[in-house]
């Protein structure tokens, strides 16, 4: 298993990457219009455009190398690692996989995933409560650990969090959100951006349904309210129920 620590390198200064594309005008109308003695300088750029630029570079690199990248996101404890362990056991070695796994602390998930034989890189954002998501520059650095010519599918297991990872493009081809039946049915409505930006949803732990007062129909309906055309796969990482359609969808996307 390869491992490295991501030590708070945080955000780059935008001048490191590209010239700022803002204009400085003393334009009569805007000067002093709002505040006397001030000059308004138009900027108009995305706050996260440094991330977007690196994500774009990642996407180009992965396309060039023929690597398909998926970004798996969910709240903590929904079963991302268990799903990936089972998924890897079904698709390797036919599909050559590698994994980048993000956690704030510990390499526990990487240890579990390394059992598949796929190369795994653990990214720890900080030993004491670091970043809540993986950003494009982290993926760029982590991907340096692999020989991309020998990889068909790069799986990124993001940090457990339904909010922030949704905002950060990493250069992936597909985004997958995992929701488990031990969470509320209304999660998609509470975290709409996550469910909106993803391409498929996995409803995990359905083996527990007999023991829960969980309304799976409502959960699926809520996912479809936010993203009406999103495929939803009801699965159990424990029993592997539903895996056939999830794996066949994934491999179809990979080869498509």
């Amino acid at each position: 298993m390869l491992a490295f620590m991501y030590k708070n390198q945080r955000y780059f200064h935008h001048n490191d990457f590209q010239k700022p594309h803002h204009s400085h005008d003393r334009g009569g109308g805007s000067v002093g219009g709002k505040n006397r003695g001030t000059r308004e300088i138009k900027i108009v750029r995305r706050v996260l455009d440094v991330n977007d630029t690196i994500a774009h570079q990642n996407r180009e690199l992965f396309r060039e190398k023929g690597v398909f990248v998926i970004n798996v996101m969910s709240s903590p404890g929904s079963g991302k690692t268990a799903i990936l362990v089972k998924t890897l056991s079904q698709i390797t070695p036919k599909i050559r996989c590698a994994v980048i796994v993000g956690d704030i602390c510990t390499s526990n998930d990487a240890d579990r995933l390394a059992g598949s034989g796929a190369p795994v890189v653990q990214v720890n954002t900080d030993a004491f409560g670091g970043d809540c998501h993986l950003a494009a520059h982290v993926i760029k650095t982590a991907a340096d650990n692999f020989n991309l010519d020998e990889i068909d599918l790069l799986i990124v297991e993001n940090i457990g969090n339904l909010v922030c990872p949704a905002e950060f493009d990493m250069g992936e081809n597909l985004r997958i959100v995992v929701l488990s039946v031990t969470e509320g049915e209304d999660k998609p409505l509470k975290y709409p951006l996550m469910f909106r930006v993803c391409d498929a949803a996995l409803l995990n732990k359905i083996d527990l349904l007999p023991h829960l007062d969980y309304d799976r129909e409502t959960a699926v309906q809520n996912i479809l309210k936010v993203n009406p055309q999103m495929p939803v796969f009801e699965i159990s990482a424990k029993t592997e129920e539903g895996f056939e359609s999830w794996i066949s969808w994934l491999t179809q996307k990979l080869h498509g």
Binding site: V31, T38, K42, R46, L48, R196, P228, Q229
Partner: peptide, 22 residues
């Protein structure tokens, strides 16, 4: 009632200008 929709706005996170003491 269709699901084929696109977002026109709502995902912005943009810095539009700064006002500097002249």
């Amino acid at each position: 009632n269709g699901g084929s929709v696109k977002m026109l706005s709502g995902r912005e996170l943009d810095i539009t200008s700064i006002e500097v003491e002249d």
